[in-house]
Amino acid sequence: MPQIITEQNLRNLIDLLVKEAKLVVGPKLSGSVVLYEPLAAGSDLTLDALPRRSSKELFFPICEDILSYKRENGAMKVTDVDRSKFPETVLIGAPPCDAGSPAILDAVMSWDYNDEFYLERRRKSTIVGIACTKGDDACFCRAVGLAPDAEGGSDLFLTPLKDGSYACKAVTDKGQALVAAHQNLFADGAGTEPVPFVDQAVEKLDLVKIKKWLEEHFEDPLWEKIADICVGCGACAFICPACHCFDINDEGSTDDGVRRKHWDACGFAKFTNHASGHNPRDVQNKRYRNRIMHKFKYYDDKFGKTLCTGCGRCIRACPVGIDIAEILETINGKED
């Protein structure tokens, strides 16, 4: 049975979830930009712009402590983080390019060893995705196999309707449970027409063909042509819903401190630098090549998934105008 929820009830739902002591995170105007931030009330939810950074930080924070150490009676005591204290969380209002990213990242977070920080947050989270009607000309989710109305990754999926309400579909048991626990906010019925999606400039890409080209062109003039201008600022990685590399550093003294895991970027010059001074990726175009290779070849080789949701954030943010969608189209259009 299809269900709908009015905009007011969606905001009421947030109020209720906050009262239930859940951490509710959604797009919120923060200063002059929209970010995924904790919502104090339903009125905080802003659904008219794609948040500047992706929602991956809900599961994989920009920076988090992974242990603390303290010298006690001559011995060094190491304390793990109590992950059972991570809050029950509802992510609300994430478009498919964000809602879909944890489903991609689950693979790398649980392949050889489990990343208990990420996985505990995943277990405790419910994702309420929303069909995207706000796309702009940097969007290319269709090109990488997603779509503005793709439900993948969402537990509950909302589709904006012309009358301002939302059609609801429980995609998973978690989504079903969320609806069941707040049944009075949802009404049966199919509702009015959905709001139309924005057309995307980039057509669907042949990802198999692109991967094959990458396999055969590790050395190619293309890399210098497109990536010698890269300034290595790392913005593309930091705002990406799928980039997941990180660094680990200690902060504190020899007697007392914490070890922190924090985002890193393969575009940074020192990302692969050895203490000896040797750097396997010694020039910028090799670093940018790694970004493309990782997203469209290596991750697929390893986990059978593309490490990109087509959100277009890296295109919007790049200070020198590198356009990943254009690069993919170029490769897609190559004869050999």
């Binding site: 997941h244 660094d247 680990i248 895991k261």
Partner: peptide, 24 residues
Amino acid sequence: LERRMRCGIGRCCHCALGQKLCCV
């Protein structure tokens, strides 16, 4: 091989050589 292995458990990507990871 020498690489900048940070996490040691196949996630941080610092030690990647193509699709392989030096640490794993």
